[in-house]
Nucleic acid binder design. Structure first.
Lengths: 231, 231
DNA sequence: GTTCACTAAGTTGTAGACAATTGGTACACC
DNA sequence: GGTGTACCAATTGTCTACAACTTAGTGAAC
């Protein structure tokens, strides 16, 4: 019994193969929480839900497994990968290295136009926090990450970061909904922006790492309070 | 026309699905150079080469594409991914972050038994360089990387590192065959071991990063001399 | 009452056939 | 002579059927 009756995927959106659409649909379902962690993904059910053949569903699951969003046990089917708190912390630790690298590169190569863009983003972030618009603040943080990756021009790091963030999205969500979290993290984000704008690579990297260290501590605090939900 | 007529993969080694065997076989073929960069991987040819059905081959290609060893263009097939020099440098930059993290963690959590193990490895490395056994030296370097990852206990970073190293194996190979390269890199490796043995996380991370910076410079030097081979 | 083997339902793994797309080639047309 | 179009071969994308595996449930033997 699948959680939701997602209406049939639009077939052949354009030149793209059908399997790409199904992958996108299931991926969205996982990151949006329509599929719960550890939930079984039975191929026959997905066939009915998305109106695709089993071969297509199967290819999609293989792809999602390679992305780390799905666990596939031989002969025992696929299920939504449940990322434990420890794994989430590991992911943030890896992000420290990668986002630090991107911030450093961004500070080295940023153009005047991009600096102007970041200045505006900084103002928007501060405004959102000021007004208590948590959703908007959260969205702007994602935009900031995108901007830094884009400015850094580091395709390899960017690709890995996208995968990792998708995997840990649930923990990130819980974290961003902690009361008072925005007030703590906003200055950290501003510090990152300032360092990049000032074209100081080392300071930018340090600011990113400091921010993510604070994220790890916050994750530990939540996890310790809630306890780890078993599968 | 595939490069080699690898005899049929042993079917159903144990409980493992056939696709796992095919993935391993093709992966080996790519990293060992049996398949050249940019070489087309036509599904029908692979079916004949490995004696598996096209569905199996297809799944294997999807998995390898996610691993970054294969490029798959919609309706246009798969080919061995050709990693450019710039991409290889990006990969090493990412490794700086990840291997630095692992070395730092390893230095924090290393046990006495593991220290003894690293001492022996250090002696073996120095002996191999002394005797000019480049193959053995190269092998021991890989062992060192494994040991550090294992001691660090960082599964996430380790998994990413394995993927990245597989992608750049061709550049790494060229690099390790540069005359005089071992003499330069051996002291760097020893410095890494010493810092970890001394249980000094920051020094260990710095030593790893210094080593990889030297790798990047060496890559640039080779690449500049040889020029980049176009696809 | 417990344990083991067997059976049957449910689910995944594999295979081969068919459909759709791409890229090149020959031919007509301007 | 250059250009556009229609065909054809090669290759990938998708579908359906069948085989193999896992798991839970039933019943007999100890």
């Amino acid at each position: 019994m699948t959680a939701m009756g997602s209406e049939q995927v639009t077939r052949r959106r354009d030149g793209q193969p059908a399997v790409a659409d199904v992958v996108a649909a299931i991926r969205d379902g996982i990151v949006n929480g329509d599929y719960a962690p550890s939930q079984r993904l039975v191929e026959a059910d997905l066939v009915e839900a998305y109106g695709a053949s089993r071969a297509v569903i199967r290819s999609a699951l293989v792809e999602l497994a390679a992305d780390g969003l799905v666990d596939r046990l031989p002969n025992r089917g696929a299920r939504v990968r449940a990322v434990t708190l420890d794994e989430a912390i590991e992911i943030v630790e890896v992000r420290m290295g990668l986002e630090g690298l991107c911030a450093s590169k961004a500070a080295s190569s940023i153009t005047d136009a991009q600096i102007e863009d970041l200045r505006k983003l900084r103002a928007d972030i501060l405004a959102a926090v000021e007004r208590g618009e948590l959703m908007e603040y959260s969205r702007l943080n994602r935009v900031l990450d995108q901007r830094i990756e884009q400015i850094s021009g580091h395709a390899t790091a960017t690709a890995i970061l996208h995968r990792l963030r998708a995997q840990a999205v649930r923990h990130q969500f819980r974290l961003s909904h902690q009361p008072g979290r925005a007030v703590v993290s906003a200055p950290e984000h501003v510090a990152i922006i300032d360092a990049i704008i000032a074209r100081e690579p080392d300071r930018a990297e340090a600011a990113v790492r400091a921010h993510l260290r604070s994220v790890i501590e916050a994750l530990r605090a939540i996890g310790g309070a809630h306890g780890q939900r078993a599968s």
